[in-house]
Design a protein around this nucleic acid. Structure first.
Length: 341
DNA sequence: TATCCGTGGTG
DNA sequence: TCACCAAGGAT
């Protein structure tokens, strides 16, 4: 039995029951694949169920407001996925008569869909012979074949993609792709892989040469920036002010007006405050420093509660405290609101 | 092409 | 505690 057949047989006996595996509906498969990008299955599952409940068809999604889509996505991270999903739903409804494209290249051309997702949808929804290459596949191939080429550069990616495609079972590309990813997720794991019960250990290069912990090889290291942000919760009776982010991290989400400083979180000086508060105001209290860690930056945040009589703020909207939950916020702000209101 | 984009789990 | 990583893609 060849590599692919063995994987598919293992998959048949060991797979997890997941809702997107019981459908050929390209819309549902698309949603699941976008949600699962850089996201653990267990975490993404609840968002998948919530998303399809709220947006059961591509038409419902295309009719929604961006705020609604981001609200459902709230807490999941990588919010451009939600914005692109929304954009592409409109594109398909308006230009493709609501019919999800059924060729690899057409799918690949959709916004938010790259090589991995195009191969996944092509194979799962249409049984087209395109091999997926994700973190699971890279790890498995790297170990099994003893590939020491770093995967996080163009040469490495091409090498792994080609190998992945060569191994593909053209008769069952859908099962093959599911199986190889599931095997990577459950057996050939990043840490403490289950080599003792692995069907392939006798033929696995890394296992035989004690290189399991060294493979795959990653070249680059990420650099982490530090940022210092004071959020101003400006209260006027039952109202406060928020504004929509238009760039950078958390684009499309809402936040309180803020004062960002360079080196540390000092008390904002009166000049900074007066930019926002021309009328009388008083600081009621402030939070401790909250450290919010993201993949590329550590944010040191402080929330300032300010009593004021201002009725409008530039580029801000005025929102009742009990209506804040209608707007999408970052997890950083969400956690703070949850603990303090 | 290097960097940016989130959050939570893991050992 | 902390570095690493997850069904990656856009710019």
């Amino acid at each position: 039995m060849n590599f692919s057949r063995s994987l598919i047989k293992w998959y048949g006996h060991n797979k997890r029951e997941l809702p997107w595996r019981n459908t050929r509906d390209a819309y549902k498969i698309w949603i699941s694949e976008i949600i699962l990008q850089q996201t653990k299955v267990k975490f993404g599952l609840k968002y998948y169920l919530k998303f399809l409940q709220k947006f059961p068809t591509i038409y419902v999604l295309s009719d929604a407001k961006e705020n609604e889509v981001l609200k459902v996505w709230e807490g999941l991270g990588y919010y451009s996925r939600a914005r692109n999903l929304h954009y592409t739903s409109k594109f398909i409804v308006n230009n493709l008569n609501g019919k999800f494209p059924n060729t690899y290249l057409e799918i690949l051309n959709l916004k938010g869909i790259g090589p991995y997702t195009a191969a996944a949808i092509s194979s799962f929804a249409f049984k087209l012979p395109f091999a997926v290459l994700d973190g699971n596949v890279i790890r498995l191939l790297s170990r099994y074949f003893g590939i020491k080429v770093p995967f996080d550069n163009l040469r490495g990616k091409k090498l792994f993609q080609q190998l992945s495609q060569e191994l593909l079972n053209d008769n069952d590309p859908d099962l093959h792709n599911q199986a190889i990813m599931e095997f990577g997720a459950l057996i050939c794991k990043p840490k403490l892989p289950k080599c003792d019960i692995c069907h392939f250990n006798n033929l696995c290069y890394a296992f035989n040469y004690n290189l399991v912990k060294k493979l795959p090889v990653k070249q680059k290291k990420i650099k982490i920036k530090k940022r210092y942000i004071n959020y101003l919760i400006i209260e006027n009776n039952n109202f406060c002010f928020v504004k929509k982010r238009n760039e950078g991290i958390w684009r499309g989400l809402y936040e309180f007006p803020k004062i960002e400083t360079e080196d540390s979180l000092s008390v904002p000086n009166s000049k900074d405050f007066s930019k926002y508060l021309k009328n009388k105001c008083s600081i009621i209290r402030h939070s401790d420093i909250i450290i919010h860690k993201l993949s590329h930056q550590h944010i040191f945040a402080k929330f300032w509660h300010i009593q004021s009589n201002v009725n409008q703020l530039e580029s801000c909207i005025k929102v009742r405290f009990n209506k804040l939950s209608n707007y999408p916020f970052s997890t950083l702000i969400l956690n703070y609101l949850k603990d303090n209101y």
